[in-house]
Amino acid sequence: MTDEQRLAELRDLFLSAPEVGATRFVAVALSAALVLVVLWLVRGRRLRAEYTPIWMAVAFGIFGLSLNLDVLRVLTRALGAWTTSSTLFFLGQVFLLVICLNYAVRLSRTGVQIKNLAQEVALLRARLDALGDPPRPGAGPDV
């Protein structure tokens, strides 16, 4: 048997390891906890509903994988990884990269909007000053 064959055999051994009940339990608990935390944040108005789909998708993704670990094994084989935990770790990293990029884009857009608003406030205030209106309580922010 060549080294290559031995390695392939070892890899098959890793991937055919029996499922551990605790793993499935932790995954289900994690997905349930994520859904509950997201709902709690939305209810407390600390997270807007339009930002929840991605987190719900992650929660249900984890839940789906925990119900059918064979999908994870297929993914692991396709990616060339040795263990399902490596695949999970890799997918987690990809998800973090994508979510960081997503929020950087949103932040850039928000930054431009804030800048434009600040400029509009400054210009409107200058126009008010030019009209000679005395500042009125509640007329706007004190700029």
Binding site: K115, A118, Q119, V121, A122, L123, R125, D129, A130
Partner: peptide, 18 residues
């Protein structure tokens, strides 16, 4: 001078653009 006041610091370019 006529004064236009930003509510907070935007940067040199932001001030020019205003």
């Amino acid at each position: 001078a006529r004064v236009i006041r930003h509510p907070f610091n935007l940067g040199y370019g932001g001030a020019l653009q205003t």
